[in-house]
Write a protein that binds this DNA or RNA. Structure first.
Lengths: 149, 149
DNA sequence: CACAATCCTGAATATTTATGAAATCCTATC
DNA sequence: GATAGGATTTCATAAATATTCAGGATTGTG
């Protein structure tokens, strides 16, 4: 019983956001398993599940969430907060308004562009490490394009 | 106030197991910060901390038990949260899941590897500055090795 | 079978966390 | 300084979770 129930718990937790033990209880009932919240509290401890404060959902540790399409977010971010751009060999330096570098850098990271190996950012400057000099130019041109649009 | 307090929360949570918001409240009071539990509930959500059911301790997602030898910690961190690695000249760019770069960078720093001069990290990217191109390759290979194991 | 030891569970309850509403604190502007 | 608007915090309370205790099951042993 117990181990079957626990494997079902993992399955449920993986396929939809479960944010409370009561909710989990209902889902299990739907599958013909009826237990109390106390039991689920113990199951969750046994399974080592984790409750993320950001959305309150139970998760197996280490499994991350995928969000919506990051490209539009990036385009908006560029249009809104980019103030300057410059390529130096394989690096591209972006300037923003004070305090805006971090959000823009995150947008770039999440867009997972082919030219970009990664970014590091300070307060109003972002360093974009590109995969080569050619890629740095391509990236700069792409961004400049977005600024104009 | 808020951002200072939140950085203190991260610090406290990293250095000892905090299992309730009241406990966190006491620790903060010990550092001269006096707030209510309600505020901490919101801070914890803002910071995206996670409460592990296995021991009830709050953690930054992805960070594993900080203890003794830093190498095993690093290996585990690599296995768990590394998503990509790439060397560009003397630099190595590591990619992680969103928001996970910081903890992995800390693990690298603490391991004090011979090839590594230092690290800088953003949201999901870490820039590792190696002591030379040869060392960058060695470091990359070492990490890749760990990913496979 | 009888017994003990152990595991699992539910009920009741204690503890912990989240939240709505009001109060307070900041910051910018006149 | 006075004031508006927003952010942040507290207070009070609701909601969610953990735990204690006791009652079956189940298993192993003589």
């Amino acid at each position: 019983m117990k181990s079957y129930r626990q494997s079902l718990v993992l399955e449920l937790v993986d396929q939809e956001p479960i944010t409370s033990q009561e909710q989990l209880r209902e889902r299990l009932k739907g599958r013909g398993i009826d237990v109390t919240q106390a039991t689920l509290s113990r199951d969750i401890r046994d399974l080592g599940l984790v409750k993320r404060a950001s959305d309150g959902a139970y998760r197996r540790p280490g499994v991350e969430e995928a969000a919506g399409d990051p490209l539009p977010v990036l385009r908006r971010a560029v249009a809104e907060i980019l103030r300057g751009i410059e390529a130096v060999q394989t690096l591209v330096v972006l300037r923003t308004d004070p305090g805006q570098a971090q959000p823009l850098a995150i947008a770039i990271d999440r867009a997972r562009l082919a030219d970009v190996a990664g970014t590091i950012s300070g307060d109003d400057t972002i360093l974009v490490i590109c995969r080569g000099e050619r890629e740095a130019q391509t990236f700069r041109r792409q961004i400049e394009e977005w600024v104009r649009t």
